[in-house]
């Protein structure tokens, strides 16, 4: 993908594209969250036609999931503090639980946030422990890719700060660092170079965990394999036998990330193709499509998303403003650093 404008000119659009992409993917998948892979594949291209009402009828059309709700608030916290400050992030997130405004229950994040709520923001270590490898905080980590795209040395440490609010599990932390590094790579490169993307993600994850880098390195080989074969390998677990072919992606950070990354690498500049592939994977479709949307959005910017999807998004203005504020504060901080 080549562009006539410079990367610097494209940055505001890519910031918006990343966050809007996550929100669009989440909103497309939210009504179908938990649906089987068989069901999602049967829907075909219908899932991309537009937003539909959630089956329980309580949510308006275009509603995104709780992951994007947290993403938007974390973006505000970073913009406000001018840094990735866990205390600020907790302060921005806590009202969601205190006032019961969280859109849906995220079991892993709920545990951690309930502790923060009980003990206050000055407490140390309320994150859920090793073994809790849910995907609740996965989408928030894209903010680190945006914030640290020009300072990769700080990326993993900042990601640890953000994800450390809710998760101690090394697998989750490594996955989030890998996702952030890919977003950062997309913001600093015109083209997607497979080797660079995989190497960057592997290096970031390897600072935290040993098994996640191995799984990421499998992806290039699976790009040539059939979609079904690749899906089975990426969504399946090394330790457990599960029926992913029917049930879809488990609600764990690692398979969600691997499936979304694979979907994006197959068509890096086609948002509908990427999100369609993520939605057809079934299971945790909301989170998978959100990650896929963020990856493609960071690569192509907001212009490449169909306008009907951007306009139909609930709280579109708030989401866009969050992205803009984050971009402006990032520029401000960069100038301050360079001064």
């Amino acid at each position: 993908m080549k562009s006539s404008t410079t990367l610097k000119d494209q940055l505001p659009s890519r910031f918006r594209g990343t966050i809007q992409g996550a929100a669009i993917g989440s909103a497309l998948g939210f009504p179908y969250s938990g649906s089987s892979r068989t069901f999602m594949r049967a829907l075909g291209s219908e899932v991309l036609q537009g937003y539909v009402r959630h089956r329980n009828g309580y949510y308006p059309v275009g509603q995104h999931g709780a992951g994007v709700q947290m993403l938007s608030l974390a973006a505000d916290a970073i913009s406000h503090a001018g840094a990735v400050d866990p205390e600020q992030i907790v302060e921005h997130w806590i009202p969601l639980w205190r006032e019961n405004r969280i859109i849906e229950r995220l079991p892993d994040v709920d545990v951690a946030m309930s502790r923060w709520l009980r003990r206050g923001t000055e407490a140390r270590g309320c994150a859920c422990g090793p073994g809790e490898n849910g995907s609740g905080s996965l989408v928030s980590s894209i903010l680190i890719g945006l914030w640290d795209h020009d300072s990769p040395d700080a990326l993993v440490d900042d990601c640890e700060r953000l994800i450390g609010v809710t998760h101690e599990d090394t697998e989750v932390r490594a996955v989030c660092a890998a996702l952030a590094s890919i977003i950062g790579h997309n913001l600093t490169h015109h083209d997607v170079v497979l080797g660079d993307v995989i190497d960057g993600a592997t290096a970031a994850a390897a600072r935290i965990d040993t098994s996640v880098p191995r799984r990421i390195q499998e992806i290039p080989m699976l790009l040539a394999a059939s979609e079904a074969e690749a899906f089975e390998k990426l969504a399946g677990s090394e330790e457990e036998i599960s029926d992913v072919e029917h049930s879809g992606v488990e609600n764990r950070a690692l398979p969600i990330f691997l499936v979304a990354l694979h979907s994006w690498l197959r068509s890096p500049s086609d948002p509908l193709e990427v999100m369609g592939s993520c939605l057809h994977s079934g299971g945790a479709v909301e989170m998978t499509a959100a990650v896929g949307g963020a990856l493609v959005g960071s690569c192509v910017g907001e212009e490449c998303f169909p306008s009907r999807l951007i306009e139909g998004l609930l709280e579109r203005d708030e989401i866009t403003s969050s992205a803009d504020r984050l971009y402006q504060r990032q520029v401000q901080e960069r100038r301050r650093r360079n001064a």
Partner: peptide
């Protein structure tokens, strides 16, 4: 170990 009988994560310290 904190009051809820959970270990305080080393990274938090």
């Amino acid at each position: 170990v904190d009051a809820e009988m959970e270990p305080i994560p080393p990274r938090a310290l």
